[in-house]
Amino acid sequence: MKVFLAFARQSFHSIAIYRFDFWLRVSTVLILMYSIRWVWVALYTQRPGAFGASLEQMITYGVLSMAIENLFYSFGVQYYMSQQVRSGAIDVDLLKPLDFHFHMLARNTGQMLFRLFIMILPAILCGYLFFGLRPPATPLAGFQFALALFIGYLVGFHLEFLLGSIALVTLDIHSIDWAFNALLRFFSGQLVPIWLFPGPLGTLASLLPFRALFATPLSIYTGLLNGEAIINAVGLQLFWLAALVLLSRWFWNRIQARIISQGG
């Protein structure tokens, strides 16, 4: 745990350096929150009652999904892995008495905690003040949302870790990452809630791991999921988390074996 906090502390030191990145992200999120709100208002004016939720719920869903954007999209571990292996600096990572997967998790989580306090919580506050974001349906739903969001974060991390591992084999990170982000934005329910997807597309979206990131926590927050449905959704998140952890460790061990037999 100390290592996680140590990495978070480091991120605070980087802020002074990446001021531009910080303000760009913050202003983008504000614009996105503003836009999504007006998109739903416009759609509801045209077709009230066509979206399976009240306008307030939909605005809350949309604004919150933009506010938590920086929990997931961080150009994080997959780029770090590709850069370290290409430059040979992976040697230095392996020289530390840390399991590489754990090291990356600590590093990424440290940075996430930093973004949580410096970007995400302020964005949520702005959502309440200016963009019509409502408090959680019930206090319990708020707690369940936080838990589901954290599991969602872990699922997201492992997807990126796997992506980074695959990129070490294909030697190309950018195109893979682009495809991944496109799929993620769509199938996670960040832009369009997945209950609006028609037939087979909806089934696909509900089976893929991506919904663990946005759809599950947001549906809990807005009260669209209740009781047993929450348990099922979180259960599916946990299933994917377990599967991805195992897959990540298996895949990475193979890659590490290759790195230390080939010399990077």
Binding site: A6, S14, A89, P97
Partner: peptide, 26 residues
């Protein structure tokens, strides 16, 4: 270990912060 060509420290943070992280890792 020290490799003259590669640094073990974190590029963006002050030296003392890197050392603190080493303290926590080790």
């Amino acid at each position: 270990a020290v490799f003259g060509q590669k640094t073990q420290l974190w590029w963006d943070v002050p030296v003392i912060e890197s050392l603190r992280l080493f303290r926590d890792i080790y």
